[in-house]
Design a protein around this nucleic acid. Sequence first.
RNA 1: GGAAAGAUGGCAGAGUGGUCUAAUGCGGCGGUCUUGAAAACCGUUGGGUGUAACAGCCCCGGGGGUUCGAAUCCCUCUCUUUCCGCCA
Length: 424
Amino acid sequence: MLTIKFIQENKDFVIDRLSVKKFDGKERIEKIIELDNERKNTQFQLDQKLAQLNTISKEIGSLFQAGKTVEANNARQKTSDLKDEIKVFEQNLAEIEKKITSILVQIPNIPHTSVPIGRGAEDNPIIRSGGIIPQAGSKKFPHWELTDKYKIIDFELGNKLTGAGFPVYKGKGAKLQRALINFFLDEAGKEGYMEVQPPILVNEDSGFGTGQLPDKEGQMYHVGIDNLYLIPTAEVPVTNIYRDVLLNAKDFPVKNTAYTPCFRREAGSYGKDVRGLNRLHQFDKVEIVRLEHPSNSYDALEQMVNYVESLVKKLELPYRIVLLCGGDMGFTSAKTYDFEVYSAGQDKWLEVSSVSNFESYQSNRLKLRFKEDSEKKTQFAHTLNGSALALPRIVAALLENNQTEKGIEIPEILRKYTGFDIID
RNA sequence: GGAAAGAUGGCAGAGUGGUCUAAUGCGGCGGUCUUGAAAACCGUUGGGUGUAACAGCCCCGGGGGUUCGAAUCCCUCUCUUUCCGCCA
């Protein structure tokens, strides 16, 4: 979430930038400023009362030790009013703080000044593209027909075991999954990301830290009996490794990567887009997470985009990189690039990665700070992350683009991971 | 799942109701000495809030309570360790 200090000092700027995200924040911003002033005032009065009580208590202590019991007991009488007043201030303060937080978590991150204005996906500028879109010659089948034909992914079986959106990968289909995961992790390792294997269930604090809770609760599967959530992305556990951590400026960059299954309820999604591998409840993803000094986070974002680009190039997929406009951005992000690959069987661009800079929006929630050697004050670190990459749509594109009469050709780079050249 | 013990500063560890604004040791930082280093000695050493800067206030696992006063007593939750049970 945004810091109150920043809101206090940049009120009009914040309101203006929020409007780029199609968020009308004027009323809430003004309310927060008002409440924060009230908070300071209440805190000050409470502190004064506490100071008085501390003084009296010390006096009573020394009176008792000096054996002056009568005076001590007299002094004790005086504290009762003081304690009542303290109680009132404490209650008021708690109420004000609760109100502030409840409004603050409703306010999205403000987009970076380089984010274009726009309403939705149709307004996202294409930054770069590459690869060769297969020419329409022979008929290209959608992947759900290919997975059936070669018996590599069984959607019906998943329905039986769990429900829609939980496919079973079989034979070369399963091996392809494993190959992609290993390929992505190896590449991330070469790029300097340390591999971690986090839990895939997280607690409420973690969900809050990265911004899934409280608002997007319905997007996550919840294990009620233990009050834990299945992660929608490795971003959640990996970023929360650094919750309540105080780093040194020298520690940057901190680079982690993780493979995890991801679970999303996708409540409200239905229709054509959910066919086959396009939208699943459980899928595999390798994520990269990076912590940065604020002065370097936008360079880091470009580096991450270049890295993800290198992956789709190595997989020989036709791709394009779009910069999300204000209206299409996520709640917590300050700037996001999406990667889309072209999938010939559906004649569609499929989103396979989203790379974002959250600036200090997450670290404020996480209390993820750092300190310069020369300075006493701590600052919030910047957090960034990106998919590198999400598997299902990569698999869909590979199947649809690489289909031939003989079968599905595996890209050169993956062959040492799969152990086979063709799915037939 | 049952029983017991425990959770204190970067680490180790004392403190069981009133100079605890937490002893001591290690580590870190600065200095003296030295050609340089080590050793020794001296000093220093967290976070939050707040302020122009001080002051003040809060933090001894989390939350609540008792008391004029809580690291210390009570309740509760979480976690750790040991033993038992179960078990990949």
